[in-house]
Design a protein around this nucleic acid. Structure first.
Length: 597
RNA sequence: GGGACUGUAGCUCAGUUGGUUAGAGCGCGCGCCUGUCACGCGCGAGGUCGCGGGUUCGAGUCCCGUCAGUCCCGCCA
């Protein structure tokens, strides 16, 4: 039907007669000459029609409108010198529209303009999602989906051709597991009263594939979690899931660095230096207050607990006495860039701090001659020696601002992490062009869940403890690693447990009874008895990775048909009710009562 | 489950202290225009101000409720 894609025509095709199909992007009717831009997924190209050069098509060209689907045949010409358009790849040529065939018309006014325009106005997202098929015709969305495809293609080529990985599909209908997010569940008709769950990840199946000897497995896997949505969270999302046998943590990380470098080389055309920097979890928490620090800018936290443990200032000494810490976020030149209004109640930094759980936001301003400006209670509590120590520890110089966090460690870290990011962004310390990749390693195995009064796996309960820490699992480090890209966790993995006794110990540590462990994971424990190789793996959030590569702020913009924040699809109106018969076949009754009508 | 913001023409938005006939740009329709590229110029159509209720002589504007969307907290191993 056609000979080329619209966006591919270049000066090499001058003199050729081509046939193109696509959508009318724009029509400019100058009275005696009509310019048409025809668009397909490759881009657009200009056609010309006038009564002299293209007498057969001119009257039809007058009737064309935006988004009509047409097939046009004509000869490619070099544009007149004064009409060259350097802003589009096809701007050196144009095609005389000798024959036009209308393949389909637009019958209604379009809900929004498809053709890219230079103004920055953006269409409401609910409308874009309702007419997603039109939205995806637009340049930005089309580019995002093409980019996503390129990323996945690069991954497949790299893993398959260079490292002998094979892709294996794992079940979508599986069983519900404890731990982790809420499962989506489906009633089984054949086995009434029993339920399938959609997988949160292919974790157990990929480990079993290692038992089977597949050695190097990957999958572009759809995963499901029935939790509330965010800009970077959808109920169904796509993971690059990998698992490898006979490789230790270093080897796995090494292979993955090469993969990441390949992606950045293909997509961004940049070479990322290797090895990637590594930060132990404890170090990340000390210096940045979080386990996925944005290390594109420096601002590091300083622990000053020792300095204040005997302080007269009870807010600080009291926090330490009850097991907490006091930390400082020093901001170089902060006296000038951050006003007191912002730090005091009502200010945006105060608000950030209290949202993170802080009761207030204490500060010190370092003045000329290293005098300090702060509230009296803090000033009075500092001896000249402790003041000097404070300045030395934080490296503070005249003009610097010190922001305090005091209380339990988790809250202090959360508070100062948030402040660090807000201030880093505001002060322009982040270079958007910079690509910063970082491994965070040596996570603890467990963390205390105060609500459920039990230990919880930080990664997941199949993660292997560090071999040096086997004597006490509750405080052991895990052989787990996260990959952080400019402050966002894009992937995480671990070496897995491959010995039954250790797996049972971990289940015990997280409070899973022996019966429960055997009911839910008996098949895994049994598999360990039949020759399980040492193995490990990693999973990447493809949506998140592509979002960052595309420079988008929402993963919805790199997913063809995403859900809204209320987990609905405005295009299909899913979810929806089902026939009474369907429910009856499943022996399912809804107890839901709609709110009073 | 909680907090914040948004909803006015097909789209993006403005709309003063509550006051006459609710505006603009783009899009759409018609006309003019032979080198445009966000073409230009002219004319025109197009509105249940998300929905329901209330206050008021009078509501796009104030109040209550509700629906939808976005962001965040909780939640997300």
């Amino acid at each position: 039907m056609r000979t080329h894609y619209c966006g591919t025509i270049r000066t090499e095709q001058i003199g050729e007669t081509v046939t193109l199909c696509g959508w009318i992007d724009r029509r400019r009717d100058l009275g005696g000459v009509i310019f048409l831009h025809l668009r397909d997924r490759s881009g657009s190209v200009q056609f010309v029609s006038d009564p002299v050069r293209t007498p057969d098509s001119y009257h039809l060209a007058e009737t064309l409108r935006s988004e009509y689907v047409v097939k046009i045949t004509g000869k490619v010409y070099r544009r007149p010198e004064e009409s060259l358009n350097a802003r589009i790849p096809t701007g050196e040529i144009e095609i005389y529209a000798e024959q036009i065939e209308v393949l389909n018309r637009v019958q209604k006014q379009l809900p929004f303009q498809v053709s890219a325009s230079e103004d920055e106005t953006s269409v409401r997202e609910d409308l874009r999602l309702k007419y997603r098929y039109l939205d995806l015709r637009r340049e930005r969305m089309s580019a995002n989906l093409h980019l996503r495809h390129q990323v996945i293609k690069t991954i497949r080529r790299f893993l398959e051709d260079k490292f002998n990985f094979i892709e294996i599909e794992t079940p979508i209908l599986t069983r519900s597991t404890p731990e982790g997010a809420r499962d989506f569940i489906l009633p089984s008709r054949v086995n009434l009263g029993e339920w399938f769950a959609l997988p949160q990840s292919p974790q157990l199946f990929k480990q079993l594939l290692m038992v089977s000897g597949f050695d190097r497995y990957y999958q572009i896997a759809r995963c499901f979690r029935d939790e509330d949505l965010r800009a970077d969270r959808q109920p169904e999302f796509t993971q690059l899931d990998m698992e490898m046998s006979f490789m230790d943590q270093e080897e796995i990380m090494d292979l993955n660095e090469e993969l990441i470098c390949q992606i950045f080389k293909e997509i961004k055309h940049v070479e990322i230096p290797r090895p990637f920097p590594r930060l132990a979890y404890a170090e990340a928490m000390d210096n940045y207050g979080c386990d996925k620090p944005d290390t594109r800018f420096d601002l590091k936290l300083v622990n000053v607990s020792d300095l204040f443990k005997d302080s007269q200032f009870k807010v600080f000494s009291g926090a330490i006495a009850s097991g907490g810490i006091v930390k400082i976020l020093p901001i170089s030149g902060g006296n000038q860039t951050i006003s007191n209004v912002r730090i005091k109640p009502g200010g945006n930094l105060f608000k950030e701090a209290t949202e993170a759980g802080a009761k207030g936001l204490a500060y010190i301003r370092v003045l000329e001659n290293n005098e300090i400006d702060t509230i009296g209670a803090i000033k009075d509590s500092l001896t000249p020696e402790s003041k000097q120590q404070l300045l030395t520890l934080t490296g503070a110089k005249p003009g610097d601002l010190l922001l305090f966090g005091a209380g339990d460690a988790a809250m202090v870290n959360k508070t100062l992490d948030r402040l660090r990011l807000v201030i880093g962004r505001e002060l322009g310390l982040i270079n958007d062009e910079q690509v910063n990749l970082l491994w965070v390693t040596d996570f603890p195995m467990f963390e205390w869940n105060a609500d459920e009064k039990r230990l919880e796996a930080i990664h997941h309960p199949f993660t292997a403890p560090h071999p040096d820490d086997l004597s006490d699992l509750t405080t052991a480090r895990a052989q787990a690693y996260d990959i952080v890209y400019n402050g966002t966790e894009v992937g995480g993995g671990s070496v897995r447990i491959h010995q039954r006794e250790i797996q049972e110990q971990v289940f015990t540590a997280i409070g899973l009874s022996s019966e429960e462990a055997h009911d839910k994971f008996g098949f895994l424990l049994e598999a360990f008895d039949y020759g399980t190789p040492p193995h490990g793996g990693i999973a990447y959030g493809i949506d998140r990775l592509v979002m960052l590569l595309a420079g988008e702020e929402s993963i919805r913009d790199v997913i063809a048909f995403p859900k809204t924040q209320q987990a609905r699809c405005p295009l299909t109106n899913a979810p929806a009710s089902v026939d009474a018969k369907q429910l009856k076949d499943l022996e399912v009754v809804s107890t839901y009562k709609p709110k009073a009508e």
